[in-house]
Amino acid sequence: MKTFNIVISPTGATKIETIGFTGGECREATQFLETALGKRQSERLTTEFYSAQSGANTETQKER
């Protein structure tokens, strides 16, 4: 199952976590959120992002 979690801190900072995506799918799936939330401050990719060819699930965390 592919899902993403959005966390908004009291200061207004947001974090998007994707679960169940492989490779660049996570970026494609969250593009509309990135557009709505503004400029990305940082991005942290897990090892699963780079092992897309193995079919492993990917969890990507993007902080804005």
Rank of each mutant, 00 (worst) to 15 (best):
Lys15Val: 10
Thr3Phe: 09
Gly55Gln: 06
Gln31Ile: 06
Phe4Asn: 09
Thr46Phe: 11
Ser51Lys: 13
Thr58Glu: 01
Pro10Ile: 05
Gly55Met: 05
Val7Thr: 14
Leu37Ile: 08
Ala52Tyr: 09
Pro10Arg: 14
Lys15Cys: 09
Thr60His: 07
Ala52Asn: 08
Ile6Val: 15
Phe32Asn: 14
Ile6Gly: 01
Ile19Trp: 04
Leu37Thr: 06
Gly38Ile: 03
Glu43Met: 12
Val7Tyr: 07
Gly23Phe: 07
Thr22Trp: 02
Glu43Cys: 06
Arg27Tyr: 09
Lys2Gln: 15
Ser9Trp: 03
Gly55Lys: 12
Lys39Leu: 12
Leu37Gly: 01
Glu28His: 10
Pro10Gly: 11
Cys26Ala: 15
Met1Pro: 01
Lys39Phe: 05
Lys39Asn: 13
Gln31Val: 04
Gly20Glu: 01
Lys39Ile: 06
Glu63Thr: 00
Arg44His: 14
Glu25Pro: 01
Phe4Lys: 12
Gly12Lys: 11
Ile19Met: 07
Glu17Met: 12
Arg64Asp: 04
Thr14Ala: 15
Ser42Lys: 14
Thr22Pro: 02
Gly12Pro: 07
Leu33Lys: 14
Lys15Gln: 15
Glu59Thr: 05
Thr18Arg: 12
Arg64His: 05
Pro10Leu: 12
Thr22Cys: 05
Leu45Gln: 05
Phe4Ala: 08
Ser54Phe: 11
Arg27Pro: 03
Leu37Pro: 00
Thr18Glu: 05
Asn57Lys: 05
Lys2Phe: 08
Lys2Pro: 15
Ala52Leu: 02
Thr60Gln: 12
Glu28Phe: 08
Ser54Asp: 10
Gly38Trp: 07
Gly38Thr: 09
Lys62Ala: 02
Phe4Ile: 04
Thr60Arg: 05
Gly55Ser: 06
Thr47Arg: 03
Glu28Arg: 12
Lys39Glu: 15
Leu33Ala: 13
Gly20Phe: 00
Arg27Phe: 11
Leu37Lys: 01
Ala29Met: 12
Ser51Asp: 09
Thr35Val: 10
Arg64Phe: 14
Ser42Val: 02
Ile16Asp: 03
Gly38Ser: 11
Lys39Asp: 13
Gly12Cys: 13
Glu48Cys: 01
Leu37Glu: 01
Ile16Phe: 01
Gln53Asp: 13
Cys26Met: 04
Gln41Phe: 02
Ile8Glu: 15
Thr14Trp: 14
Phe49Leu: 00
Thr11Arg: 15
Gly12Glu: 09
Glu48Ser: 09
Glu63Gln: 11
Glu25Trp: 03
Ala29His: 12
Arg27Leu: 09
Arg40Lys: 15
Ala13Gly: 02
Ala29Lys: 10
Thr35His: 14
Cys26Glu: 00
Ser51Ala: 12
Glu63Cys: 02
Arg40Thr: 11
Leu37Asn: 11
Lys15Arg: 15
Arg64Thr: 00
Ala56His: 07
Gln53Arg: 07
Glu34Lys: 13
Lys39Tyr: 07
Ala36Gln: 14
Pro10Ser: 14
Thr58Asn: 03
Glu43Gln: 13
Thr14Gln: 04
Gly55Leu: 05
Leu45Trp: 02
Ser42Asp: 10
Leu45Ser: 02
Ser9Val: 00
Ile19Glu: 06
Thr46Pro: 02
Gln41Ala: 10
Thr35Phe: 08
Ala13Val: 11
Glu59His: 08
